[in-house]
Simulated assay, not measured.
Amino acid sequence: MDGFYQKSVKPRPRFEWSSKYIFRPLAHLVVVPLSRTPVTPPMVVMFHTLLGLYAVALIPQGQTLLPAFLMQIKTVLDGADGQLARATGQTSETGRYLDTNMDFVVNTALFLAIGAQSGQWLQAFLGWVLLALIGTTDFQWEAAHQRSRGNTFRATPEQQNDNPLVLALMKGFYNVVFGPQDRLIRAWNDGRFQAITRQARPDQLQEASQVYHTPRILDFSMNMGLATQFLLAGVCIALGRPLWYVYALYVQAGVLLLLQGYREHLTREFLKKS
């Protein structure tokens, strides 16, 4: 069963603590029995999406512990769909887009619920924007780290029989919602590197790229993933202070800016010494 578990785990250069030590092992307990049934990963995605929407709908009603708990169950199942797909050879391009798109739907509903519960609609909107940018930064930094080392960021899906219409709809939704921020963060990432290395020698660029995309920043950014976000949001909701989660996102955004400054400093120091 260890081999089955290892097959289900997505290879990443660093790991998210809450996912590795809490949610991924719990998801495995779900994946093992599900792998013996006709249940497919997209079915799991749709179920945990509905569960997440139900959970956040309880927040404006003043409930605390139940929505907080259900959000953690949602996170377990959110990990289970991917683990099930990898363990059983059911990864697909449609599934990847579906999972990301449905996470966006639940995340949006969460901040609507925070706004309704607190009456602080501007704060809720800013939290929604920040969570999207933090998630995209995590994604783009990891992708850039892998590219700088000549690694494959995402393996080719094992299933190639996607329904063209469904896949087109999933891609279209993703491109509308995530496309602009993906381009923004990637352009910022690449633009800053180009500005720092403008005077660098050609023989310095490859190593400078690896210094700039240091795995040290991933130790922080990858721990701002959705599993950790829902754990943190759940704590705030359980305490009856959902708006505190928005404030926590301000802190995370500040940490990312500090990390950007840190890797720029590392790259400049490398260029001076090499």
Rank of each mutant, 00 (worst) to 15 (best):
A238N: 15
L112A: 04
L226Q: 06
V211C: 06
Q252C: 10
T214Y: 07
V255W: 01
I196F: 02
A187Y: 05
F111Q: 09
L77V: 05
N151S: 08
P164T: 15
S35N: 09
M71T: 09
V30F: 05
F125D: 11
L257Q: 09
L112C: 08
V32A: 08
E93R: 12
V39Q: 11
P202H: 14
A253G: 14
G172K: 00
A109M: 00
S221G: 08
Q252Y: 01
T37M: 08
I134E: 11
I237A: 01
R86S: 06
T100W: 02
Q72I: 03
S35H: 02
D81Y: 00
Q260M: 04
Y97R: 10
L271C: 14
M43I: 00
Q146R: 14
R24Y: 10
T49M: 14
F104W: 13
R198K: 04
A238C: 11
K74I: 00
N107H: 09
F125C: 03
A85E: 01
L271K: 05
N189P: 03
P42W: 12
N163W: 04
D103R: 03
V129T: 08
R183A: 02
H28I: 07
M1S: 13
T228P: 01
T137V: 04
A168M: 07
Y21P: 00
L243D: 06
G135S: 13
P42T: 12
R192S: 13
P38K: 15
G82W: 01
R268Q: 03
K74N: 07
D78V: 01
L58M: 13
L50D: 05
L266A: 06
V176I: 07
V177T: 14
